[in-house]
C-alpha cells in the first residue's frame, strides 16, 4: 500500500492503495466515482475511459503507481447536469440503452472531437470502434457525435 496523490476532476486527492491497483478501482471504489465503468479490465471494451489533458485513456491500464501526480477527468467531471455538449447531444439522440458503456463512449467522443472538431464518418468509425456497446447504440451514437460537433462549434463562436 502507498499514498498516492492525483488530481481528479480538478480536485487534488490522496489515496492509500495497493501499487498495482488500476486507476479504475481508485476512481470507483476509493473515490466513489462510479461513472467510470469496469467492463473487461484489459483495455478492450472502453467503458473505463477517462480523459487526461483532453485525450481519452483507459483507466484499467494505469496502475496506481503510474497514476501518481497525473490529472484525470471522469464523466462526473464533464458535468453533473448533462450540460456538456457531448452529454446534451447524447440525450437529444436518446443514445443510451443500458447505459453502462455510455460514460466511456461519451469521453471517447470528447477525445475524438478535440482532435477532429468536424469528424468524417471514417474518423468516427475508427475512433469509436475502440469502445464496445452490446446494446447496439452505434447508429445513434454516430448521430450524437455529429450533433455534439455542431454544438461545440456553436459554443466556440
Amino acid at each position: 500500500m502507498s499514498e498516492i496523490g492525483l488530481t481528479v476532476n480538478a480536485r487534488k486527492r490522496v489515496v492509500n492503495v495497493d501499487d498495482d491497483m488500476p486507476l479504475v478501482w481508485i476512481l470507483r471504489d476509493t473515490l466513489a466515482l462510479t461513472g467510470t465503468k469496469f467492463g473487461c479490465g484489459v483495455g478492450v471494451c472502453g467503458s473505463c475511459t477517462v480523459l487526461e489533458n483532453g485525450k481519452a485513456v483507459r483507466s484499467c491500464q494505469i496502475p496506481a503507481s503510474e497514476a501518481k501526480e497525473r490529472a484525470f477527468v471522469t464523466i462526473e467531471g464533464l458535468s453533473l447536469d448533462a450540460s456538456h455538449p457531448c452529454q446534451r447531444a447524447w440525450l437529444e439522440e436518446d443514445v443510451a440503452q443500458c447505459g453502462f458503456c455510455q460514460p466511456g463512449m461519451i469521453l471517447t467522443a470528447c477525445g475524438l472531437l478535440r482532435d477532429h472538431p468536424n469528424p468524417t464518418d471514417e474518423e468516427i468509425n475508427t475512433v469509436m470502434s475502440d469502445s464496445v456497446c452490446r446494446c447496439g447504440t452505434y447508429p445513434r451514437m454516430r448521430k450524437a457525435i455529429r450533433r455534439a460537433a455542431a454544438l461545440l462549434r456553436e459554443q466556440k463562436r
Binding site: G46, T49, K55, V57, R58, D130
Partner: peptide
C-alpha cells in the same frame, strides 16, 4: 500502427 490496437491503446 493505425491498423494496430485501438486509438487509446496506441496513445499508451
Amino acid at each position: 500502427f493505425l491498423a494496430g490496437a485501438s486509438p487509446q491503446l496506441r496513445n499508451m
